[in-house]
Each structure stands twice: as structure tokens, then as C-alpha cells.
């Protein structure tokens, strides 16, 4: 049985996937349309480069959070497992803390940029530069929550192991 919170989480991550797919499709259309317009119709989309860069940053930041959720960020685990197997749980906690500190800094630094750039408006798109930092801030928050959850579940697994 899925709890309603789990259902919400499931839906939430599905909508992140959909958002990324939508942005990527938009980037394909924009950049391709610009090629067709330039060569076939002597015209172009002025905002295509800036908009697709913006979409790109959103995809990267959201994708980084999805990757973290699935534990798929590249890492080398076999060295520690082979040489110091007893310390692996400890290393995992260290890793969680390092991630937590880094994404907190990402969140904090990006949020400051979001606030500093609401009035910094791109001439070609009319959009505030803040939009570049919004996904970084959001992703920092998401990755922080994911890591906290993983750190806490590390503790509960340990608890359960010592209970049995």
C-alpha cells in the first residue's frame, strides 16, 4: 500500500520528468526552427540561443536531483569496499554530510542570485536573469531533502540491525 505521502512523491517526481522532457523538446524545436528559418526564410528567432541555454540549465539542475535520488551520480565504491569494508557505513555518512553541505551552499548562493537578479532583464527575451538561478536553488533544496532522508534512513537501518 502506498501512503498518500508516497503517492505525492511519486507524482512529484513524475512531473519533474515531464517538465524536463517538455523543456528538452522545446530546445529541440527552438534550435531546429532557427536553422530552418535562417537558411530557408532569411529570418530567425532572436531569443532561441538564450531560451535554450535557460532550458538547458533547468534540465541539468533538475536532472542532477533525479540522479541523486536514484544514487546514480558517478562514484568509485569498490576501493573502499575492498580495502576498508568495516568503515564503509561511516564513509557513507561522511559522503552524505559532504553532499548536504555542498547542496546547502548551492541553495544559499543561488537563492541570493535569484533575489539579486529580478531586476536584471534580458533584452532579447524580456525575462529576468533570476530564472537561471531558480532551478539551482530549487535543486539544491531537493538534493538537501533527498540526502537528509537518506542519512536518516541510514540511521534507522542501523537501529533495526542492532535490534535484531
Amino acid at each position: 500500500m502506498m501512503s498518500s505521502f508516497d503517492r505525492f512523491l511519486h507524482l512529484f517526481w513524475r512531473s519533474i520528468d515531464t517538465l524536463m522532457a517538455f523543456l528538452l523538446a522545446m530546445m529541440v524545436v527552438l534550435v531546429f526552427a532557427n536553422v530552418v528559418l535562417r537558411y530557408g526564410f532569411s529570418s530567425g528567432i532572436r531569443s532561441s540561443v538564450e531560451l535554450s541555454r535557460l532550458g538547458f540549465v533547468w534540465i541539468v539542475m533538475l536532472g542532477a536531483a533525479v540522479t541523486l535520488r536514484h544514487g546514480e551520480h558517478l562514484s568509485i565504491n569498490d576501493v573502499a569496499e575492498a580495502l576498508l569494508p568495516k568503515l564503509v557505513p561511516f564513509f557513507r555518512r561522511v559522503s552524505g554530510i559532504v553532499i548536504l553541505v555542498s547542496v546547502s551552499m548551492l541553495f544559499w548562493g543561488s537563492t541570493k542570485q535569484v533575489l539579486a537578479n529580478w531586476n536584471n532583464i534580458s533584452q532579447l527575451t524580456g525575462l529576468p536573469k533570476s530564472l537561471l538561478y531558480v532551478p539551482a536553488s530549487f535543486s539544491g533544496l531537493l538534493m538537501g531533502l533527498i540526502t537528509l532522508r537518506q542519512l536518516l534512513s541510514l540511521d534507522t537501518t542501523k537501529q533495526r540491525e542492532s535490534d535484531s
Binding site: 522532457a21 538547458f56 534540465i59 541539468v60 533538475l62 536532472g63 542532477a64 533525479v66 551520480h73 558517478l74
Partner: peptide, 17 residues
């Protein structure tokens, strides 16, 4: 759609690095 999602996730992982 699935291709787009997979490409986005892989992009996220690689480009974050």
C-alpha cells in the same frame, strides 16, 4: 517521451559534474 526523459536525466548527471 521516454527518450526525452532518459536524455534529460543523463544530461543532468553529466553536466552537473
Amino acid at each position: 517521451y521516454e527518450v526525452l526523459v532518459r536524455a534529460s536525466r543523463a544530461t543532468g548527471m553529466v553536466m552537473f559534474l
